[in-house]
Design a protein around this nucleic acid. Structure first.
Lengths: 177, 177
DNA sequence: GAAATATGATTAACATGTTAAATGAAATCG
DNA sequence: CGATTTCATTTAACATGTTAATCATATTTC
């Protein structure tokens, strides 16, 4: 029974008991998801200008880098390593193919599958972007500390690992609705 | 063993045997942005089913929680604490208001600003979601370890802090084009 | 005080995230 | 075999991310 709307008068300072949080929870600005989101944004903010100057989105860059590390790869596996959902990947591959940065062909053993590889043009683009990308990464490492960075990565992977078996607490208790 | 692009007359690429990576870079699947992305996804995967069962998106939940902690807040400040861009926030507030989960009024001192607060219905929703949310957070803490979790948070904040002054390495060298 | 400028919020346009449905091909069942 | 089921990918629909543009109000400048 919040009575905040009753005071549409000038007094933004309510005369009632409102004004303090009514539902005590952890300070969400310090929650783990928020910390991870902000940290990631702080990192990506460093890379985006460089990528953008080459006309690449963060996701396109992930895909090209994944492709540069292999000869060819199936779409499903590419989704896994680039950490993209199928529909997003499908659209981005369509555009990358139209830009001639990648190439596709059907897997002859299984016509449902298609196999993707990076083109010469795509490789050139990576070669153009890589120096600044590496320089930025080096500067981040320098600022934060190489040892600390490695430790952070270990802790992040351990977090991932420790949650990998969990199945989303009580959705079972509601999923029948 | 498919050597797919041997027949390309791209010229610029040497005729070396493809199939291995040609552009040596760090393994991007272990890059800091990817580690942060995967860790965050592993965490959010735990919360999403519960939120979804109450018809809430992750962003809507962030907004409601931010509003529950204050009496009222201006849109710009809300964007800052909920870590959302203006346009996203604008759309979500429109929908939350239509659902009567929040209320808005103009700031009388400055008619450009609007002030948002959570409604009684919104508070009830938070009270309904909070228990499972807290339980999930507790389980994550239990699995990963409370001390380790606190340490991880510290390291994430320090990463954020150490990058806060950086301005995006060499976009200056390209931004005039 | 009127014109110019700056600011807060929204809208526009397009890319991506996300879930469900559709499509086409392979595998399995009968 | 033929029907059904499973699987890989795409398409559809809608929410959100992201940058630019717009709109209304405030502030500044002259």
């Amino acid at each position: 029974m919040a009575r905040k709307k009753t005071s549409r008068t000038t007094g933004s300072e309510p005369a009632d008991d409102a004004r303090v949080r009514r539902v005590p929870m952890r300070d969400f600005t310090r929650s783990l998801p928020m910390s991870l989101l902000r940290a990631r944004e702080a990192v990506m903010r460093q890379f985006r200008p460089s990528l953008r100057s080459h006309g690449l989105s963060e996701q396109q860059w992930r895909i090209l880098r994944a492709l540069a590390a292999v000869d060819a790869i199936e779409v499903t596996e590419l989704a896994r390593v680039a950490f993209l959902l199928g529909p997003s990947l499908s659209r981005i591959l369509r555009d990358l193919e139209a830009s001639h940065l990648i190439e596709r062909k059907l897997a002859k053993a299984d016509l449902r599958r298609s196999v993707v590889s990076i083109s010469a043009k795509g490789l050139k683009l990576i070669e153009a972007v890589a120096p600044s990308s590496e320089a930025i990464y080096a500067e981040i490492t320098r600022r934060y500390g190489a040892r600390k960075l490695a430790e952070l990565q270990d802790m992040l992977h351990e977090l991932e690992r420790s949650l990998s078996e969990l199945k989303g607490a009580e959705e079972q208790s509601v999923e029948f609705e």
